[in-house]
Write a protein that binds this DNA or RNA. Structure first.
Lengths: 349, 349
DNA sequence: CTGAAAGCGCTAACAT
DNA sequence: ATGTTAGCGCTTTCAG
């Protein structure tokens, strides 16, 4: 194994010079730099991660905690995780993959051992048990005098109280409002909201509620009636839910769907009932673009910007590690894309 | 930050004693052990990962390289990744998430820096450019005399040549054969195989070809005719593909589908054409159980055991790290579950 | 069964 | 602009 000392010897300089060439933390004459770089290349030197971490008390690793549960829409998580990993690399960090399984203990373990310099948490619950740990061990505010004690974190998703925390999320409230506006503009007055599985609401993940709040309040403003029904997803559950909705509000002409596994069943059922989309009813979804474009009908939708969420989370956490950056809540503005599933409300006939 | 030395002092023992209590590498009197453990608890001590890695030349980290591309069925990857992470934890390892983006360089970087002790690679291509690196730097065979130079790896998937490599995968050949046997048993003579997107075949990922080979050879043995057509997935592509198949082989009564995004479109199209499943035609899929059970028809399927693949990969890699374990190819036997989408061939009428 | 002490490879003062 | 050197916190001989 090639060590820094060997590189130094080979290049005829001191160890610290090699170190500084690597880190760029002090100016090096072009000549020396080149000799050192040449030696590094010729010897095939790779700095030892452990030694570095020990000497600098920085591991250059960001821990990413993903939910163990897989009842959320998985591709979104994967996309976020991949975006986190690639963005982290562009900032010189690697990503450690933690599952929610260990819970708060994982936070302590990874944080206290110096395994990771910072954490990104996905799928935060409104009153997450990991939050207290994060609050007092992270951020410029909470920085202890002792070196390297600071372990900043960023949440993807919003807990009930964000004080002392940094969070990134889609502005689901605005997303809900956007859906209503679009339908209202097309003349729809009676809309139904097909939501996530009841379990999602019970777990208090927040995003579903926020969508609903935004949606209802805008519906109120615009004078629309909105009926909300959670739905497990899948054909059977969707069939039941749809029947109930149409029973209660036969005049429903617009559907907002926030549940990837309900999208296709809904479209199939509507088709089967002879309700044409978008001629008879309009459907708008809050879902990743991929789902919207690959459905049997190209769906008008508000996108869930998975990549951007991952990227922003990394940028925030890196900013904190660099001493820039503050506790803040970044709500990504939703974007609505009109595709083929929404249209003007049918004229009464 | 609490150090081992502080624990030692607090417990009134030497540093090495604390270390040995932690590692269990030599016998400690019950009395001392308890005093040490108490100090550890009271002080809230967590061993420093960097120092450990440096002193022991083991990071206790396994790198997992996932494909950047997301045209594969994502939930399976996620499930594998999560299984890898949780299984690794039970063996005392953490998981570093690498994307394919960096390619071979990532292997070198992570391996040479000692960041990870071993690697698991997903989505290996038949002639993957990372393989040479892995072959000569890993495994009991390739162990260099110098300590800690050995970086074992395990592939999830099979490359063209597996010599000097350890691999885990579903036995896709057997899976294909199983599908044919099931259909043959039900009396089907003309079957169509709806495969992955052409890109998957072109990329030479292997698994799709292996399924097909197993399927065709068994079809030959049993005297069935099998027509294979790749398919992009999605409604439009599936419609075209289906039309061609029925045009060329109007007598087709059995479908084998290996493409998650073609499953639902196929079912919808069959329904639309008035072909009842399983009365008129049988459909069998090679897909994760979740897909099979959540489709609009409960599908008879051969499962893709994502969790088991992840778990096995970790177990193999840990065995290698422990000096047990050999280069071997683990092919997981496929299991066929009969659900509602297959039945006897309709009697000629 | 326990201690003492020599590194592991690198970083970051402190020198010059 | 470069060299010297003292650790970083832990593991692991070597001694007892």
């Amino acid at each position: 194994m090639v060590t820094l000392a060997e590189v130094a010897q080979h290049a005829g300089v001191s160890a610290s010079t090699v170190s500084y060439v690597l880190s760029g933390k002090r100016s090096i004459s072009a000549a020396t730099r080149q000799r050192v770089e040449r030696s590094i290349r010729e010897l095939g030197y790779h700095p030892n991660a452990g030694a570095r971490a020990l000497a600098s008390s920085k591991s250059n690793i960001i821990a990413l905690m993903v939910p163990l549960r897989t009842d959320m829409y998985v591709p979104v998580m994967m996309e976020i995780a991949i975006a986190v990993a690639t963005t982290a690399r562009t900032h010189g960090y690697d990503v450690l993959l933690l599952t929610g399984e260990e819970g708060p203990d994982a936070v302590r373990r990874v944080t206290a051992s110096g395994l990771a310099d910072a954490m990104i948490l996905m799928d935060v619950e409104l009153d997450d048990e990991r939050l207290p740990l994060l609050r007092d061990a992270g951020g410029p505010t909470g920085a202890k005098p002792g070196v390297g004690e600071d372990r900043p974190s960023v949440l993807i998703g919003l807990p009930a109280s964000t004080s002392g925390l940094t969070c990134v999320d889609l502005d689901f409230g605005a997303a809900g409002a956007l859906c209503v506006e679009h339908l209202a503009m097309l003349g729809h007055r009676d809309i139904a909201v097909i939501g996530e599985a009841p379990a999602v609401y019970e777990r208090h993940t927040g995003f579903a509620e926020r969508t609903l709040d935004g949606l209802r309040s805008r519906a109120r403003d615009l004078g629309l009636r909105a009926l909300h029904r959670p739905c497990e997803g899948g054909y059977d559950a969707m069939a039941v839910t749809l029947a109930r909705i149409l029973d209660e509000r036969p005049g429903t002409t617009g559907f907002v769907v926030q549940n990837e596994s309900a999208v296709e069943p809904l479209l199939a059922l509507l088709r089967q009932q002879g309700r044409a989309v978008p001629e008879d009813v309009s459907v708008i979804a809050v879902c990743p673009d991929q789902v919207a474009t690959q459905a049997s009908v190209r769906l008008t939708s508000v996108a869930i910007p998975a990549q951007e969420m991952g990227r922003r989370a990394v940028e925030l956490v890196v900013a904190k590690l660099d001493g820039r950056g503050t506790d803040e809540v970044v709500l990504i503005p939703p974007e609505l894309t009109v595709r083929g599933s929404t249209g003007p409300v049918p004229s009464a006939s």
